[in-house]
Amino acid sequence: MFSAPIADLITGLFSFVFTIMIFSYVIGDNPFFRVAIHVFVGLAAGFVTLVVFEQIFINKLIAPMLTGNWTQLAFLAIPLIMGFLLLSKVRYQKPGRWVVAFLVGVGAAAAIAGALGGTLLPQVWASINLFDFSENQSANFVDKLVEGIIILTGTVFTLAYFQFGVRENATKPGKSSVLMRAITSIAEFFIAITFGALFAGVLSAALTALVERTHSIINFFNSLFFQ
């Protein structure tokens, strides 16, 4: 339809215009920003619909129906019926309930099983093995020891920070012990460092996005006027 340079020009122009429209939010909410956001949301929704139609309906339903044998067709009926029941939830609540229950059950089971085997146990095991130097004799013992102590302290104290239960008796009702308060104070230090690291990460990612956009605008003008 368009030659490559024209297509690049149009693409670059759209990219430039919409980037400026989004940047205009710096001066406050304005119609340009809102138009850009609405266009983006609509475009994203349309694209997702197309992807789902192609990747799910065609690839996983229609194509197997056309090419599969009777057994495969019978198995395809199950997700088809469940899909229709789920769709009926838009108007009628009851028929789709057990499909939602199935989705929630399967999703939760997969997530919990994965978390247990892939995160909880390996992470706990790694924390326990911090002081196992048998496999790493050549490494600097002191460095490893200090690192292990810091990581272990941070892990245990941060977990203890989220222990909100208190011991209650007649003289001191509902108060944490002195030891727990001390642990909580140390844990706050570790948590503050974690928040700082998270903030720095988010800031760095956003700044890189800004840098990439600025380079994109400059490249557009370069290609328009200097090449």
């Binding site: 992470q123 095991w125 790694a126 990581i151 720095a200 990460g201 890189t208």
Partner: peptide
């Protein structure tokens, strides 16, 4: 991404 590093680095430390 840099924003995901603090959460995913423990998986490197654990091997």
């Amino acid at each position: 991404s840099a924003q995901a590093e603090p959460m995913l680095r423990p998986y490197y430390d654990s091997g």
